[in-house]
């Protein structure tokens, strides 16, 4: 632990090394955060089963301080999007994401959550959760084995280690904006796409009309 946290830039006299460690605020802040990432209990599809297996005794996610799966987004730091994101489900996912307090992280577990997966061509499947919420780590695989998921979590820890109190967005001046929640109409409608949609839908209409003529 000493080595992990100590700041090599400030030398400590050798007789004191067993008792004193000089560290930086960033380091201790990040160390605290990355050793207690609480994920949300959030299973979508097949990948969720591997996520549960990761939490079970063989792979034991508790070794990373992450065993505290929270059922409510308000207590969670990490959303593991574990499975196929469907259009019917995506409004709820965005809402859950909005409810999570900062600092929050999103992990796309498996091919489906990253980019649509084997079911990408389907009419009810969203081709990647990153179309709606920002993703920090992608874990490929279908499904990623528990060890692959753990590797992704370690990657996330590394990412956290690289952050600094000075620049993190949640202590910045701007308040973080909530992601607009998509709406279900004749097909999925993302409010951010309103303008494009108004324009394109008109065009589609014109096209079909001209074809009909």
């Amino acid at each position: 632990m000493n080595n992990e946290l100590s700041n090599p830039d400030i030398p400590v006299p050798s007789e004191l090394q067993s008792a004193v460690t000089i560290t930086s605020l960033d380091k201790i802040y990040n160390w605290g955060r990355r050793s207690s990432i609480w994920p949300m209990v959030f299973g979508l599809a097949c990948c969720a089963i591997e996520m549960i297996c990761t939490a079970a005794s063989r792979f034991d996610i508790a070794r990373f301080g992450m065993e505290v799966f929270r059922a409510t987004p308000r207590q969670a730091d990490l959303m593991i999007v574990s499975g196929t994101v469907t259009k019917k489900m995506v409004p709820q996912i965005v809402r859950l994401f909005n409810q999570m307090p900062e600092p929050k992280y999103v992990m796309a577990m498996g091919a489906c959550a990253s980019g649509g997966g084997p079911f990408k061509e389907g009419y009810n499947v969203v081709s990647g959760i990153d179309k709606f919420v920002p993703v920090d780590v992608y874990v490929p695989g279908c499904p990623p084995t528990p060890q692959a998921l753990l590797h992704g979590l370690i990657k996330l820890q590394e990412k956290i280690d690289g952050q600094s109190l000075k620049s993190v967005r949640w202590y910045g001046q701007e308040t973080s904006e909530a992601v607009p929640v998509p709406v279900l109409g004749p097909d999925l409608f993302d409010p951010r796409q309103h303008a494009l949609l108004a324009q394109q839908a008109g065009q589609v209409q014109e096209n079909t009309e001209s074809v009909e003529k």
């Binding site: 649509g116 499947v125 081709s127 109409g185 004749p186 097909d187 993302d190 949609l197």
Partner: peptide, 25 residues
């Protein structure tokens, strides 16, 4: 990626004549 082919950039498809401004879910 299939997204490149879709005018909306997402996996969506609207019926012809769909008017986004006059519609309630």
């Amino acid at each position: 990626r299939s997204e490149a082919d879709n005018p909306y950039g997402k996996n969506v498809n609207y019926p012809p004549g769909f008017d986004i401004n006059n519609w309630t879910p």
